[in-house]
Simulated assay, not measured.
Amino acid sequence: MTSTSPTRTAADAPTDAAGLMDGAALARRMTDRTARRAAELTRRTGTAPCLATVLVGEDPASVTYVRMKQNRCAKAGIDSRKVALPAATTTGELVATLRGLSEDPAVHGILLQHPVGPHIDERAAFEAIAPEKDVDGVTMRSFAAMGFGLPGFVSCTPGGILRLLDAYEVELAGRRAVVVGRSPILGRPAGMLLLARDATVTYCHSRTVDLSAHLREADIVVAAVGRPEFIRGEDIKPGAVVLDAGYNPGNVGDVDFAGARARARLITPVPGGVGPMTIALLLEQTVDAAEAQLGAGAPVSG
């Protein structure tokens, strides 16, 4: 399993000098390393890492995301198993499916594509994933590990954000970070990971009174509220670092990109910023999980 404290290497050093945080380029470098590790693991054990993806229904965006993750798995030398369930699947049926995958020794990581539909108890479904296979960092045990700074799987989007901050050598200790969003797999763990790195963290959300006042004091802004251009460029503190984890129809993030870029020191584009990092970390943690389950020792460096 990975540590909740991301690691930066010289190979991760950014090449963009225009204030954009190039998540796509960093994700490619991460995935190249993951592919080398997967190949070495397969050579040593005769078993390739395997990620099972579970999709409930046929939501077009979810179908696209799952297909993208399967394609990235193939490029990284990771086997993928797609489990497609009908939209009418009950909580009990989904839980049974996830428990079955958790007990399958041929599966090393499990991803439940979310959202799963309002009729399903999503938390119950997440908790059916064995902790050692929770490579998306969605279970309560993974959240506790992030909160207490213990080894474990991090939620992939927040973990990807930390990797970006490290790659661009953004100082976190003592800095004021504002996380706009409070979902249990994005906003909340993002704040926990920043707090673990000695940032001073404020959580805000769609009902925060005078959000602008909080944003104008923030050295680091994480936008994860799920509303297009919810954060206005004029509210960004000059010189701040902005990470936009939103993805809305029309390739629009949660931040007014043009307005924020005029004031920020660094900012992630949408697409091409946080999104690729999410998948790259998912693949990396799948190989971490496979190594742990197969007793395969230290990963390949580089």
Rank of each mutant, 00 (worst) to 15 (best):
Q113K: 04
P249D: 09
G253S: 05
S3C: 06
E132C: 06
A298S: 12
A130G: 12
R8S: 14
P249F: 07
G239R: 08
D235R: 01
P228M: 01
D32L: 00
F257W: 05
V63S: 14
T97G: 01
G149R: 00
C204I: 00
L20V: 03
A289N: 10
G273C: 07
A296W: 09
R8I: 15
P158N: 06
H108K: 06
Q293E: 15
A223V: 03
K82L: 15
P228R: 11
P151T: 03
A39K: 14
A17S: 15
G233I: 07
G250E: 13
S102C: 04
R188K: 15
C50Y: 02
A296I: 12
G233V: 11
G159F: 02
T42K: 14
A298H: 11
Y168T: 00
L165Y: 10
V270D: 04
G149N: 00
G187T: 02
Y168V: 01
R207T: 09
Y203F: 13
P86T: 07
S5N: 15
A292M: 13
C73H: 11
S301M: 06
A213T: 14
G233T: 09
R197L: 12
V63Y: 00
P86K: 09
R99G: 14
P49R: 06
E40F: 01
L186Q: 04
A245N: 09
E40H: 13
Q70D: 09
G295A: 01
T202W: 08
L162E: 02
E169D: 15
R216A: 10
V270E: 02
P6C: 03
P115G: 01
T45I: 04
G181H: 09
R232D: 13
G92M: 05
R216D: 05
L215E: 13
R175D: 03
A258G: 12
V138C: 01
R43K: 13
T157Q: 04
R188H: 12
L186N: 01
K75T: 13
S155N: 07
V66P: 08
P238Y: 03
A52T: 14
V56M: 10
S102G: 05
L20N: 03
M68W: 08
A218H: 03
V201S: 08
A35P: 08
A11C: 05
A25Q: 14
R232I: 11
P14Y: 06
L193D: 04
L283Q: 12
I279M: 09
V222F: 10
L51P: 13
Q285W: 01
G302Q: 08
G174H: 02
S5P: 07
A74H: 05
A48D: 13
D244G: 02
R72S: 15
K237V: 04
C204W: 08
A13T: 15
A35Q: 04
R265S: 15
M192Y: 04
